[in-house]
Deep mutational scan, measured.
Amino acid sequence: MKVMIRKTATGHSAYVAKKDLEELIVEMENPALWGGKVTLANGWQLELPAMAADTPLPITVEARKL
Rank of each mutant, 00 (worst) to 15 (best):
G35M: 03
K19S: 15
M28A: 13
A9W: 07
M28Q: 13
L48M: 09
A32M: 14
T10R: 13
A17H: 14
K2H: 11
K65D: 12
L40A: 01
A52Y: 06
L21D: 05
A9Q: 11
M4R: 11
D54C: 05
K37Q: 08
K18G: 15
L57I: 06
W44S: 01
D20A: 11
V3W: 00
A53M: 10
A32E: 14
P58Y: 05
V26I: 14
L33A: 02
D20W: 08
G36Q: 04
A9C: 10
P31E: 13
K7G: 06
I5G: 00
T8I: 09
P49L: 05
A53Q: 10
W44E: 05
E62Q: 12
M1V: 14
K37N: 09
K7Y: 09
A14W: 07
E23N: 07
V16M: 13
L57K: 02
I5M: 00
A52F: 07
G35I: 03
R64G: 06
S13K: 09
L24A: 14
A41G: 09
V16Y: 13
V61H: 02
L21Y: 08
L46W: 01
V3C: 03
L33N: 05
L33D: 03
T55N: 02
M4P: 01
K7M: 10
L24W: 08
A32K: 13
G11E: 02
L24M: 13
V38G: 00
P49S: 05
T8K: 07
I5C: 05
K65W: 15
K7P: 06
K7L: 10
I25M: 01
L33F: 07
E47M: 14
D20H: 12
A41K: 08
I5V: 08
M51P: 01
E27D: 12
L40Q: 00
A52I: 06
E62R: 12
N42T: 02
Q45C: 12
I25A: 00
T8H: 10
V26Q: 04
A63H: 02
A41Y: 05
E27S: 13
L24V: 13
T55W: 04
R6Y: 11
V16Q: 03
V3D: 01
E22Q: 08
P56H: 09
N42F: 03
E29Q: 09
G36V: 06
K19R: 13
T39D: 01
M1A: 05
G35C: 04
K18Y: 15
R6D: 06
N30L: 09
A50M: 14
L33W: 05
A14R: 02
Q45G: 03
K65A: 12
M28P: 00
M4Q: 14
P58H: 03
P58C: 06
G36L: 04
K18P: 10
K2V: 14
M51Y: 06
E22W: 13
A52M: 07
M51S: 04
A50Q: 12
A41I: 04
K37E: 06
L57S: 01
T39A: 04
P31H: 09
A50F: 13
M51C: 05
T55M: 06
V16F: 15
D54A: 07
V26F: 04
A32W: 15
V26R: 05
W34R: 04
M28H: 12
L24T: 11
L48H: 00
Y15G: 05
W44P: 01
G11L: 06
A50N: 12
K65F: 15
A52L: 08
L33G: 06
G43F: 05
D20L: 10
V61M: 02
L48F: 03
Y15F: 11
P58L: 06
K2I: 15
R6F: 13
W34M: 03
E47G: 06
E62P: 07
V3E: 01
L66T: 10
A17C: 15
S13G: 06
A50Y: 13
M4A: 08
A14C: 11
A63R: 00
T10I: 12
L66Q: 06
A32R: 11
K18L: 14
A9R: 10
T60W: 15
I25K: 00
A32D: 15
L21R: 11
P58N: 02
R64F: 12
W34T: 04
E29F: 05
G43Q: 02
K18Q: 14
G43T: 01
D54E: 09
G36Y: 05
P31A: 11
L66N: 05
P49H: 03
T10D: 13
A17S: 12
K37G: 07
S13P: 02
A17M: 14
R64A: 08
Q45T: 13
I59E: 02
V26M: 07
L40F: 04
K19E: 15
T60K: 04
G35Q: 05
V3G: 00
E22I: 08
A41M: 09
I25C: 01
